[in-house]
Amino acid sequence: MIIASQANGMKQVLIIVLLAAFSGAVSGQSVESPNYGLKSPLTAEIVRVDFNADATVVWMTVMSDINNAWFCIDRNTFLVRPDGMKIKLTGLKGLPYCPATHKFKRPGEKAAFSLTFPPTGMLPWFSIVEECMGGCLSFRGIVTDASLNNRLNEAFALSGSGNNMAAYHIYEEIIAETDSLNLGIEGSVYTSLIMLDRSMGRHETARQWYNRMMTSDTPDLKLYLENLKRQGAEY
């Protein structure tokens, strides 16, 4: 009787585990407020990314920062995988496709919307790129790893509170651990190290990080170099 009871108990546990695993597979995985490298427009934000069995959905907001602002999404909007493969947008909610437009009533107003793509499975990172004539939506190097997102959040918070060296050490650790992986966020981490060194008057160290970034196969390297140039950092 004891053996039978244990066996039945084990079966129940196994069934529960399998149901939980199946439920997770069906519901997919979500990433809340992921970090990213470069973005456009500056008032756009990513709220959540859902990697579901039937679709990958990116939930976003965009805010008006001027009077008479408007926004729309071009049908030529893509999710770009780490290998460079472009996956075309298949669904849009909350905003119209161009040339129709969503007109904001006042500065500070936000519009929430979602972009739906064919299923990609969980990706280590990806980008969103709208191909249009101007003012295009773009998020480069979206981070999906929870641990890396937490460390980046910690570094941003430390830097924002004036604790630059503590933030600097976190960025150093991230580069040491991920440089060979060529993650999409790499250019942003290098940029943070360069700009922190410059703010502390350590221009030679900033130059060394710049040179290392130039030879590290950083994704979207040209865009990050242009971004550094706009901030006055060019070597």
Rank of each mutant, 00 (worst) to 15 (best):
K110W: 14
G94H: 06
L92Y: 07
K110Q: 12
I73V: 15
F104G: 05
L89I: 12
K105A: 15
A111L: 04
R106S: 13
P82D: 01
G84E: 06
C98H: 01
F78E: 00
F78V: 02
M85Y: 07
A111I: 00
P82E: 02
L92F: 03
T77H: 10
V80F: 12
K86L: 04
F104C: 04
T90H: 07
P99R: 10
E109N: 04
P99V: 07
K86P: 03
F78P: 00
A111T: 02
C98K: 00
I73T: 09
A100E: 15
H102P: 00
P82L: 07
T101S: 10
N76I: 01
I73A: 08
R75I: 06
R75M: 13
T90N: 14
K93I: 07
L95N: 02
M85C: 03
F104A: 01
M85I: 10
M85W: 03
I73H: 05
G108Q: 11
F78G: 00
K103A: 13
A100S: 14
K103P: 01
K103D: 14
P96C: 01
I73K: 02
G94S: 04
L89M: 10
P107I: 12
P96E: 00
L92G: 03
Y97V: 04
A111G: 00
G108W: 09
A100G: 01
I87C: 07
L95H: 03
R81C: 06
N76P: 00
M85S: 14
F78N: 05
C72V: 10
P96Y: 01
K93L: 13
A111Q: 08
A111K: 09
L92E: 05
M85P: 01
V80T: 13
L89W: 07
K88A: 13
T77S: 12
K86S: 13
P99C: 06
T77G: 07
N76R: 06
C72F: 13
G84W: 08
G84S: 08
P107C: 12
F104Q: 03
K110Y: 12
K110R: 13
P99H: 10
L95V: 11
R106N: 11
K88C: 01
I73R: 01
P99N: 06
L79F: 09
A100K: 14
C72I: 09
I87W: 07
E109D: 11
F78T: 02
R75K: 15
T90R: 14
K93D: 15
K93E: 15
K105T: 11
P107H: 13
G84L: 09
D83M: 15
P96S: 00
T90E: 15
P107F: 12
K110P: 03
K105R: 14
T90V: 15
L95D: 04
I87K: 09
G108L: 08
Y97S: 03
L79G: 06
K88Y: 02
K86V: 02
C98Q: 03
A100D: 15
K103Y: 14
G108A: 02
Y97M: 05
G94W: 07
P82F: 10
K105N: 13
L92H: 02
T101R: 12
T101K: 10
K93Y: 09
I73S: 03
R106A: 15
